[in-house]
Amino acid sequence: MQLTVNGKTYEADVEDDMPLLWVLRDELGLTGVKYGCGIAQCGACTVHIDGMAVRSCQTLAGSLEPGAEITTIEGLGAPDALHAVQQAWVEHQVAQCGYCQSGQIMQAAALLDMNPEPSDEEIDLVMSGNLCRCGTYVRIRAAIHAAADKLKEA
């Protein structure tokens, strides 16, 4: 099947019932997306499909619409031009172990696309499906506010 990921077109010889998570990691080598639980309970595997955050562990390859634009953490920004959320994550030193953070960042970026100025409560409503065993939630919330401010200035 053909996939568009981070603006590039890939061919992947996979079964329809393979989760997108494993297509990305094992077939395309995009290992920024993480396996956490495999049952949509943790959010570590969050990517964007056509701008919407989804759990890639629940998205079967065969269910992708033709032409769907998939974005992973590797394509959200670039090392020399970080996305505002990635930049805020660095400035606030959000990550501790870091395992959940690509999912957190992808979910946060989707949140700010939808709601450029979220309140604490709105952040909690959107981000509560992304678990962090290190408990970095307070820094996550602060970084989202900072990224929102940066995006407003842009």
């Binding site: 495999g38 955050a53 629940q58 079967l60 269910s63 409503l125």
Partner: peptide
């Protein structure tokens, strides 16, 4: 948070315990 973030639209069988 859209329901479809986890409850992906698909007619594939639901077989995994505790999955969305």
């Amino acid at each position: 948070l859209p329901c479809a973030t986890c409850h992906i639209t698909s007619d594939a069988p639901n077989t995994v315990p505790h999955a969305a």
